[in-house]
Every structure is written in C-alpha cells, then in structure tokens.
Amino acid sequence: MQSEISTEAALAALEQPRTLFLSAVADLVGELGRLLVQDRDSEQGREQRSAASLGAFGAGRVDARRFAALISDRPVLPPAALEALGRARAVLSAIVTGGPEPFVVVVGPGEDVAVAVGAGLARLGRVFGAARVAALARAGAYRSSEHASLLEALPFARWNRGERALAPPLVVRVEGPRPRLSGLADLLNGAVKIALLAPASESPAPLALLVSPGVFVAQGSSLDLLERLRSSPAPGIVAILPERSSRFVHDPAGGDKLRDRLTVEYLSDVPPDDSRSRRDFRADEEQAQLALLIAAASGGSANGQVERVEDLRSDPAGLLAAWLLREASLPPPVDARAGAA
C-alpha cells in the first residue's frame, strides 16, 4: 500500500515551526523597511514622516517639525548600503509572501537526497544571507563583490548556531524505491526538521543509519509522527513509508539511554531479495542497523524493552535471531550494546 500523506498534509503538520521562521523574516522585513525610509529622508521628509506617524489625531495638535526634531535618527547610510538593504529586504519579502514552495524539495529517482536537501536549505539560507547583508550594510562593511552571493544562497554548513536554531522545516518528496539518506546526518542539526515522503520506498528501514542520540528519527506511515516531530525540541526527520516498512521512533526526550529513546512498533520481515541479480546491500545494512539498535536497547534492560516491542507482529527475539544468524558477519549483540548504549 502506498503512503497517502500528501505534500500539503505534511506542510500543514509542520506549519507551526514554518510560521516561526516566517515571523522572524517578516519582522526583519519591518525593521529594514524602517531603515530604508528613515535614512532616505531629508529634513523635510522627516517632518512629513513625523506628521504621518502621529496620525490624524495628532494633525493640527502636535507640531510635526518640533516633534521630528526631538526624535533622534540613525546616521544616514550611503547609497550603496541602502541599495544592499533594499535588495536584502526584497529577498526576505519574497520568502514571506511566496507560499510554501521554498519549503518543499522533490528528489528524483536515484538522486542523492542529502544533496537535494542541502541545496534546498542553501536556497533558504539566503534569508540568513540577507540578514547578514543587512547587518553588514548597517555597519558599513558591505562589499558587493564579496557579499552579494549571500543573497542567492547560503550553504547549511555556513549557518551559525543562531541561524541553525531558526531553521525552517522541510517537506521532502522522494521518488524511486531506494532513497539514499545517509548523507542527511550532517544536516540534522539546530532546528532542522525534515518530513520525508517516500511512497515508493522498498527499503525496510531507510532511517536506521541516522539514529543518533540528539536527533528525533522516526519512520512509519502515520501523520501522527509528523506531529511528534513538530513538537520535539530536537532536530529530526520522519519518513512516511509504505506500510510494509519497519516502524520505529527514536525520541531524544526519552532519556539518556537508548532503550528509553527507541520504540520499535514493527520490524519489517521482508526478507532480503536473493533472487535479484544485484542485492541491495545498503537496504539490508539499514535493516540490520535497526535490528542492532533493538538488540542494544533490549539488552540494556529486559523489562524496559519487552513492553515496548510486545505488539510486534511477530516474535521480536526470533526475528532478531534470524537476522543475526543470516548476517554472520555482524558483531554479536553484546558488543553492539557496549558500543551503542
């Protein structure tokens, strides 16, 4: 069965963090607008603006010239700086009013998801680029030759901590059966939240390799996962996959120990397809990683884990054993526990 969650539904589920991001952008648009008006004005202009700002009740009652003289203005910026501010503001305005398009990334079959998402984030990074341009222009340090490219894109690797904490959520639609996701680990930082829609995925556990202590990682087929991603304070990724895929949630809020963070609802029993001419080692590797994680978690505390996996469709211990036997090259669970817990 194919995933029925549409891009629109995923966008709606992540509206709140996107709203926060857009609020910050809108506020900066306002702040820059003020600078642009203020600094362009002559003395007469200031008087007119003063009169306008006092409204109709002030008209005829407050002397706009005297009022203007009281209000200290910022130093007048040179034309080049104003021009840069204007361009920065235009970039920001376009994001505020431009609809959800910049927040959606579509990845074609066989394309590397991390590359596409990285490009999407870099494009959104022009918001921070514009903010930096504005700051540089105000400080008189803007050089068009050096800084103009900031208004086009800012790669995620160059976002600073504050900017990462403001990162907007993305909806990523992946076409094709074998999404390549491992490179995403570098992008799951700050406030980055990714809703990955992969209705044609055949990999049973594509996200298993992304599990790390501070990142919310979940895969399954329900929209509820997106709600959990939204409300988690951690960066994270949720993959919405066909029903036959494994289903698990790794939530950093669970605690310090892996067993408290990881809940596996269903472990896919799709066997490795030996009939194919070329076995997909990576998909198997991912599923094996998930199995390892379960082993590590359940080994940590028998009590804790049994409850969490008891609703597995089949016997988890048997499944694990099957995996471990088949994947003879894997290290035994005891070592894995030592490594992961």
């Binding site: 609020s23 910050a24 506020d27 903010a131």
Partner: peptide
C-alpha cells in the same frame, strides 16, 4: 508578536 525578531543579530561569524 515577534517569535524571533533577532534574525538580524546573528551576523556573520556569530558563533560565540
């Protein structure tokens, strides 16, 4: 309502 009106504060190189 300004959720994060500090967008401009974090200029280049603000990794304090």
């Amino acid at each position: 309502m300004n959720e994060l009106c500090s967008l401009a504060v974090y200029g280049a190189g603000d990794d304090r």
